Computed example of a mutant assay.
Amino acid sequence: MLELPKLARPQGGPSPGLIAWVLLALGALLVSGCASRGGTIAYDVADFGAPDPISQTALQGDYTIAPLDKLKIEVFQVKDLSGTYEVDLTGRITMPFIGSVRAVDLTADDLASELESRFAQGYLKNPEIGVGVAESRGSVLTVEGSVKTPGVYPVIGRTTLLQAIARSGGIDEYGNPKRVAIFRQIDGQRMAAAFDITTIRTGEAPDPDVFRGDIIVVDGNNVRRAWRDTIQAFPIFQIFSPL
Score class of each variant (00 low, 15 high):
Ile182Glu: 00
Ala194Ser: 05
Val152Tyr: 05
Gln163Trp: 06
Tyr174Thr: 15
Arg158Pro: 12
Pro154Trp: 06
Gly170Cys: 11
Ile186Cys: 03
Ala192Pro: 11
Asn176Val: 03
Gly203Asp: 02
Thr202Tyr: 08
Gly157Lys: 03
Leu162Asn: 12
Gln163Arg: 11
Ala205His: 10
Phe183Met: 11
Phe195Lys: 00
Val180Thr: 04
Asn176Gly: 11
Glu204Asn: 15
Gly169Phe: 04
Arg184Ser: 08
Arg190Ser: 10
Lys178Thr: 03
Gly170Thr: 15
Ile182Asp: 02
Gly188Trp: 07
Gly170Asn: 08
Arg158Asn: 03
Ala192Glu: 11
Ala193Gly: 06
Ile182Gln: 00
Ala181Pro: 14
Ile165Lys: 09
Gln189Phe: 05
Gln189Gly: 04
Arg190Val: 13
Ile156Thr: 11
Ile171Ser: 00
Gln163Gly: 01
Glu204Ser: 14
Thr202Gln: 10
Asn176Ser: 12
Thr159Gln: 13
Asp172His: 13
Ala164Ile: 12
Ile182Val: 10
Glu173Gly: 12
Ala194Asp: 06
Thr198Phe: 07
Gly188Ala: 02
Tyr174Val: 15
Ala166Trp: 02
Leu162His: 08
Gln185Ile: 13
Asp172Glu: 08
Thr202Leu: 14
Arg179Met: 03
Val155Ser: 06
Ala166Ser: 13
Ile186Ser: 01
Glu204His: 13
Gly203Trp: 01
Glu173Thr: 11
Val152Ala: 03
Ala166Glu: 02
Ile197Ser: 02
Tyr153Pro: 01
Phe183Tyr: 13
Ile200Val: 13
Ile200Asn: 07
Glu204Ile: 14
Gly170Pro: 04
Asp172Ser: 05
Arg179Glu: 07
Tyr174Glu: 15
Glu204Met: 14
Ile156Phe: 06
Asn176Asp: 05
Tyr153His: 00
Val155Met: 06
Thr160Gly: 02
Ala193Ile: 09
Ile156Val: 15
Pro154Cys: 04
Arg167Gly: 12
Ala164Phe: 10
Tyr153Thr: 15
Lys178Pro: 00
Pro154Glu: 03
Ile186Thr: 15
Asp196Trp: 06
Ile197Trp: 03
Lys178Asp: 02
Ile156Ala: 04
Ile156Trp: 01
Tyr153Gly: 01
Gly188Arg: 09
Ala205Pro: 05
Arg201Ala: 12
Gly157Met: 10
Gln163Pro: 05
Tyr153Glu: 03
Asp187Phe: 10
Ala205Ser: 13
Tyr174Asp: 15
Arg167His: 06
Pro154Met: 07
Gly188Tyr: 09
